[in-house]
Amino acid sequence: MSVAASVEVPGWNAPTSRARSVLRVGMRVGQVVLFLAAVFFIVAPLGWLIVLAFSRGFSFPSLVPTSFTLSWWHTVLASPGLLHSVVLSVTIAPVVLAVSMVICLPAAYAIGRYNFPGKRFVLLSVFSINAFPRISLYIAMIPMLFLLNLMGTVIGVVVVQLIGTILFMTWIPATGFAAIPEELVEAARDAGASKVQVFWRVLLPLCRPSIAVAAVLSFLAAFDEAQGTFIVGAPNYLTMPVRMYSLVLDYPVQFAAVFAVVLSIPSVVLLILVRKHLFAGTSAAMHLR
C-alpha cells in the first residue's frame, strides 16, 4: 500500500484563491519576522560580545561604546594567570586527544570491521554515557577520583575530559571503517598484501577523514570542557573555560569579553574547517549499527 493511500488528512476544506494569496503573504511576513528574530536571538549576542571586547566603556543606555580601544587585549595578553590557563588548555587537550585515540581507535576498528559478541552493547554503552546528565556523572565520579588520589591532579582532569570524547572518537571512525567496501580489502589481499599492510595502506588512509573529524570534535570537547574540570581540577588546574567562571564574576566585562573571544577562536576555526565532513560524519555515525 502506498504511503499516499494510507495517509488520511481529514478536516480541511480547499482554500479559495483569495485565501491562498493571503496565506502566501502571511508566510512571507512570517519568514521575515522569523529571520529577524533569529538574528536577534542567535547572532546579536555574539556581535555584542565582540563589540564589548573592543570597547572602553558604555554610557548606559547607549547602544554604542563611548570609544573603542585595544587596551583590554593588552591587559589580557599580559596577564600571567590567564596565560597559564592558555598553556594548560593547549597542553591538556592534546593529551586527552592522544589518550582518547589510544583507547577508542582500536575499538572503532573492531566495531567497524568485525563482528564480536556484545558489539551492540559496546555501541550502546558508549552512546549511553552521553545520555546521562553530565553534572551528576561528575559528582558521582568524585569518590572514585578521591580513592585513586586523582582529585586536584592533572591526570584527574584528563580523565574527566576524556569522558566527553569517547563517543566521538569511537562512533565516527567506526562508521568510517565500516563504510570501506570489503572488495577493496580483498583486492589488496589478492595482490599479496599482508593484514598489517592492508590496515596501513588501505583501511587507515580511507578512514583518515572520519578520524580527522573525530579528532577535531574530541579536541574541542576537551578544550571547551568546563564543569568537570572545575570540579576535579580547581584550584590547581584552571583551564581557559574554567577561568571564564571567575572572570565573569570578578573582572570587568570587557576583560572577560576579550578572553571569551580568544577562547572561541580555536572552536570556530576548527569547526568551520571540518563543517562539511562534520555533518556528514555525525549523520552517518547516527546510523551505525
Binding site: 582500536p106 573492531a110 570491521r113 568485525y114 564480536f116 559478541p117 567496501p181 570489503e182
Partner: peptide, 18 residues
C-alpha cells in the same frame, strides 16, 4: 564488510576498551 571479517577474540578485546 563486518560479516566478512567475523572474529571473536582480539576484536572483542579491542572493542571493549572504551
Amino acid at each position: 564488510s563486518a560479516e566478512g571479517g567475523s572474529r571473536g577474540g582480539l576484536a572483542g578485546l579491542l572493542g571493549y576498551l572504551p
